[in-house]
Amino acid sequence: MSLDLHFILILLLRMAIAAAFVVSASIITERSGPVIGALVATLPISAGPSYVFLAIDHDAAFIAQGALASLPVNAATIVLGLTYVVLAQRNNLLVSVGSAVAVWIVLASIIRLFDWSLTAGLAVNLVAFGICIPLLAKYRHAKMPLVTRRWYDIPFRASLVATLVAIVVSTSGWVGPRVSGVIALYPIVFTSIMVILHPRIGGPPTAAVLANSAWGLLGFGMAIAVMHVAVVWFGSAIGLCLALATCIVWNLTLWAIGRRAKHRMRHAP
């Protein structure tokens, strides 16, 4: 088998694994209801497979440096979310999604120009989320119409993630860890939510979904920071596992807080 054919087959296998992960997560989300579904949906569905395959191809130093680039990109994603949420109240899909994605691309292009430290990345996230979460709060509640899944929903999401994995894996060797870390954090999940739900249920309800994802995205940023530190100290495998554990614990904590708040409201005099 030629080297090129071997690379293509391995790449297709990795794309298929990533796509299968997304399909499984989507099915669990739809069948488990909104509470557990939200926990699954805010896990690193797109970035996770990308980083796993990067870890297979590169050493721990590459992954650690990529995580430093990914951390400020997480801040760019919450700005994308805020841009869409505000515009979606009165604008169509093209304007809302196009503007949000354009904002992310501009911010990501600026981010890749700099060498980021862990402190700087955390500071950018602190500022971005400190501004965006209060602004998103008033958009969190909207009447949610019944959503019926169409046949192309899951294949669309799977193809987006598979494409992202293909780009990250095939270009990482020559673009380096900084650009790979930026590309790996492209918000596939947010994009698919916007594109699929906006024309079906309207802008405000779709915006409410993204607005409620802000706290989960903050936890994802923490997981990236944990990954960087853990990869440096313990290697890629342990670092990736600890990052995933951080996301899970954070989401479970959010779920417990939300459940406790509903319980208090239900039993309030």
Score class of each variant (00 low, 15 high):
Arg259Ile: 13
Ala16Lys: 00
Tyr186Gln: 08
Gln65Met: 13
Ala214Gly: 10
Gly66Met: 00
Lys138Ala: 01
Arg259Thr: 12
Leu122Met: 07
Ser213Tyr: 04
Trp174His: 05
Ala20Arg: 11
Ile167Leu: 05
Asn212Trp: 13
Ile111Asn: 03
Asn74Ser: 02
Ser159Glu: 07
Trp255Asp: 13
Asn91Glu: 11
Ser46Ala: 00
Val179Ile: 08
Ser96Phe: 03
Ala243Thr: 13
Gly258Asp: 01
Pro204Thr: 02
Ile238Gln: 02
Val85Met: 03
Ala243Ile: 13
Leu146Tyr: 10
Phe7Gly: 15
Phe114Ser: 11
Val97His: 12
Gly173Thr: 01
Leu54Pro: 03
Gly235Gln: 01
Ala230Pro: 06
His263Asp: 12
Ala128Leu: 10
His6Tyr: 14
Ile110Thr: 06
Ile257Thr: 09
Gly219His: 09
Ala207Glu: 07
Leu94Arg: 12
Leu5Val: 06
Ile28Trp: 11
Val232Ile: 14
Ala18Asn: 00
Ile201Glu: 06
Ile10Tyr: 15
Asn125Ala: 04
Ala20His: 05
Ala230Gly: 07
Leu68His: 06
Phe53Glu: 12
Arg157Ile: 14
Trp250Leu: 04
Phe234Gln: 02
Leu82Asp: 01
Phe234Thr: 00
Trp250Gln: 00
Ser170Lys: 02
Trp215Asn: 01
Ile238Arg: 08
Ile36Glu: 04
Arg266Cys: 13
Ala61Gly: 04
His198Met: 15
Ile63Ser: 06
Ser46Glu: 03
Phe114Tyr: 07
Arg260Gln: 14
Arg264Ser: 15
Leu94Met: 15
Ile28Ser: 10
Leu107Thr: 05
Ser192Phe: 08
Val73Thr: 02
Arg31Met: 07
Gly219Asp: 04
Pro199Asp: 10
Tyr51Asp: 00
Trp104Cys: 05
Arg140Leu: 05
Ser2Gln: 04
Asp59Asn: 10
Ser236Asp: 11
Arg260Val: 15
Phe156Lys: 00
Ala19Met: 04
Ser70Phe: 01
Leu118Thr: 12
Leu54Glu: 05
Arg264Glu: 11
Ser172Glu: 01
Arg150Ala: 08
Ile183Phe: 01
Leu252Glu: 07
Val182Pro: 00
Ala166Arg: 04
Asn125His: 12
Leu82Met: 07
Ile8Ala: 13
Val161Ile: 08
Gln65His: 09
Gly121Asp: 01
Val161Arg: 00
Lys143Met: 15
Asn92Ile: 15
Ala137Gly: 08
His228Thr: 10
Arg157Ala: 13
Thr42Gly: 10
Val85Arg: 03
Trp116Ile: 00
Arg264Gln: 15
Tyr186Phe: 15
Val124Lys: 04
Leu11Ala: 08
Phe62Gly: 00
Leu94Ser: 14
Val52Leu: 09
Met222Gly: 12
Gly235Thr: 07
Trp174Lys: 02
Arg264Cys: 11
Val226Arg: 02
Ala75Tyr: 11
Trp104Leu: 02
Trp233Glu: 05
Gly176Asn: 00
Trp151Val: 15
Ile188His: 06
Cys132Leu: 15
Trp233Gln: 14
